[in-house]
C-alpha cells in the first residue's frame, strides 16, 4: 500500500499524542513541523496545548474547516474575523503555481515546473538547501491536488497562463465520498 505525505502526517499526529518526539521518517524541522505550526496558529492564536498541539490541529480539520469539514478543498472566501476558526491566516501562505516563489505566477513558473518533470513524465524530487525533500515546492506544484507532480500540473499551469481557467487549481479533482473514499486521489 502506498504511504503518502498524508499518512505520514497522520502517523506523526498519533506519535505526538503519545509523546514521541519523532516518528518513522518524519524529521523534525522539515515540512511537518512547519505545517503543523502554521495550522496551530491559524486555528487558535491564543491557546497553548503543549507539545502535541501543533500536530493535533493538523490532524484535525484544516484551517478552512468552516467551508467543508469533511474534505480538503480550497479555502473559503467568506470569513468571519470574530471567529477564531475563520481568523485570517497569520502565516505566509504558499501560492499554488508560484513555483519560483516570487509572488506571481508567470512563464518562469512554467519553466521551473517543467524542469521538475523529466521527459518520461516523472518527477525529479526537488530538494531544499539542506538536502531534504522540498515539500513547500511540491505543495505549490501539485495544482491538480492528486498527490503527484506530473504533466497534468503542467497542463493546468499552461491553461491558467493562457487565461483558459481562472485559477491554476481549477483542474483540481473533486473528492468522492463513497466507494473511492473521501481522500481518494488526494494525497495531501
Amino acid at each position: 500500500m502506498k504511504k503518502t505525505k498524508k499518512t505520514a502526517l497522520t502517523a506523526a499526529a498519533f506519535a505526538a499524542a503519545v509523546g514521541l518526539s519523532t516518528y518513522g521518517t518524519i524529521v523534525s524541522g522539515t515540512y511537518v513541523d512547519k505545517e503543523l505550526k502554521a495550522n496551530a496558529d491559524q486555528f487558535d492564536n491564543t491557546t497553548t496545548y503543549g507539545n502535541t498541539t501543533t500536530i493535533q490541529t493538523v490532524y484535525g480539520p484544516p484551517s478552512y474547516f468552516n467551508t467543508d469539514p469533511t474534505e480538503e478543498t480550497e479555502p473559503i472566501s467568506e470569513t468571519d474575523p470574530t471567529d477564531p476558526l475563520d481568523a485570517p491566516d497569520p502565516v505566509e501562505t504558499a501560492i499554488p503555481g508560484d513555483i519560483d516563489n516570487d509572488g506571481q505566477i508567470d512563464s518562469f513558473d512554467l519553466a521551473k515546473l517543467r524542469k521538475l518533470i523529466n521527459t518520461e513524465g516523472e518527477l525529479a524530487p526537488p530538494l531544499t538547501e539542506n538536502g531534504r525533500l522540498d515539500y513547500d515546492l511540491l505543495e505549490k506544484a501539485d495544482l491538480t491536488h492528486d498527490g503527484a507532480i506530473d504533466n497534468s500540473d503542467i497542463h493546468a499551469l499552461q491553461a491558467y497562463l493562457k487565461g483558459e481557467i481562472k485559477k491554476p487549481t481549477d483542474f483540481a479533482i473533486p473528492v468522492p465520498l463513497y466507494g473511492p473514499g473521501p481522500d481518494f486521489g488526494i494525497d495531501k
Binding site: K3, T4, T7, T10, E71, G181, P182
Partner: peptide, 23 residues
C-alpha cells in the same frame, strides 16, 4: 502510517472520531 480508513458511516464517539478516518 498505513492508508487505511473507516468509511463515512456512523458517529463513533470521542474515542474514535477522527482517529479511524480523516474527517
Amino acid at each position: 502510517g498505513e492508508p487505511v480508513s473507516y468509511g463515512c458511516s456512523h458517529y463513533l464517539g470521542m474515542e474514535y472520531e477522527r482517529e479511524v478516518r480523516d474527517w
